[in-house]
Deep mutational scan, measured.
Amino acid sequence: NRRVIAMPSVRKYAREKGVDIRLVQGTGKNGRVLKEDIDAWLAG
């Protein structure tokens, strides 16, 4: 149960899109989840 590193704005964006942020692979520094990662996850 790893802790997800993401800015609050990215967490909010994921919530609005209905994405469980824990399932998204972060590509930022130290595995940080970026807004682009959410978009990529939604695109498949």
Rank of each mutant, 00 (worst) to 15 (best):
N1I: 09
N1G: 12
N1K: 07
N1E: 13
N1R: 04
N1Y: 04
R2S: 13
R2A: 07
R2K: 15
R2V: 15
R2N: 15
R2P: 12
R3F: 07
R3Y: 04
R3S: 08
R3P: 15
R3W: 04
R3M: 06
V4W: 03
V4Y: 04
I5Y: 06
I5R: 07
I5L: 08
I5W: 05
A6V: 04
A6H: 03
A6Y: 03
A6E: 02
A6S: 04
M7I: 08
M7E: 11
M7H: 15
P8I: 06
P8K: 15
P8D: 05
P8V: 06
P8T: 06
P8N: 08
P8S: 08
P8W: 07
S9I: 13
S9P: 08
S9E: 11
S9F: 10
V10F: 01
V10Q: 02
V10S: 03
R11A: 03
R11V: 05
K12Y: 07
K12I: 08
K12Q: 06
K12G: 04
K12E: 05
K12S: 06
Y13H: 08
Y13I: 04
A14V: 01
A14W: 01
A14H: 00
A14R: 00
R15D: 05
R15M: 10
E16L: 13
E16I: 11
E16P: 01
E16C: 06
E16M: 11
E16A: 13
E16V: 12
K17N: 14
K17T: 11
K17H: 14
K17M: 14
K17F: 09
K17G: 05
G18T: 06
G18V: 06
G18E: 10
G18C: 08
G18W: 09
V19Y: 01
V19H: 01
V19P: 00
V19R: 00
V19M: 06
D20R: 06
D20S: 07
D20K: 07
D20L: 08
I21Q: 01
I21A: 03
I21T: 03
I21R: 01
R22D: 07
R22F: 12
R22E: 10
R22H: 11
L23N: 11
L23G: 10
L23R: 13
L23E: 11
L23P: 02
L23W: 10
V24E: 00
V24S: 01
V24R: 01
Q25P: 14
Q25T: 14
Q25G: 12
Q25M: 14
Q25E: 14
Q25W: 15
Q25K: 12
G26Q: 04
G26F: 03
G26P: 11
G26M: 03
G26E: 02
G26W: 03
T27W: 04
T27P: 02
T27D: 02
T27R: 10
T27I: 03
G28P: 01
G28L: 03
G28M: 03
K29R: 13
K29I: 09
K29M: 10
K29A: 10
N30D: 12
N30E: 10
N30P: 02
N30Y: 13
N30W: 11
N30S: 14
N30T: 08
G31S: 08
G31N: 10
G31Q: 10
R32Q: 08
R32Y: 07
R32W: 08
R32H: 08
R32A: 09
R32G: 06
V33I: 14
V33N: 00
V33K: 03
L34S: 09
L34R: 10
L34T: 10
L34I: 09
K35S: 08
K35P: 05
K35G: 05
K35D: 05
K35H: 06
K35N: 07
E36P: 14
E36G: 15
E36Y: 14
E36D: 13
D37K: 00
D37C: 01
D37V: 00
D37G: 01
D37Y: 00
I38G: 00
I38D: 00
I38M: 02
I38K: 00
I38A: 01
D39T: 10
D39I: 11
D39H: 06
D39V: 09
D39K: 09
A40F: 13
A40W: 12
A40N: 12
A40P: 01
A40L: 13
W41A: 08
W41V: 08
W41P: 01
W41R: 05
L42E: 08
L42A: 09
L42H: 08
L42K: 07
A43W: 12
A43T: 14
A43M: 13
A43E: 12
G44R: 13
G44Q: 13
G44K: 13
G44W: 13
G44E: 13
G44D: 14
G44L: 14
G44P: 10
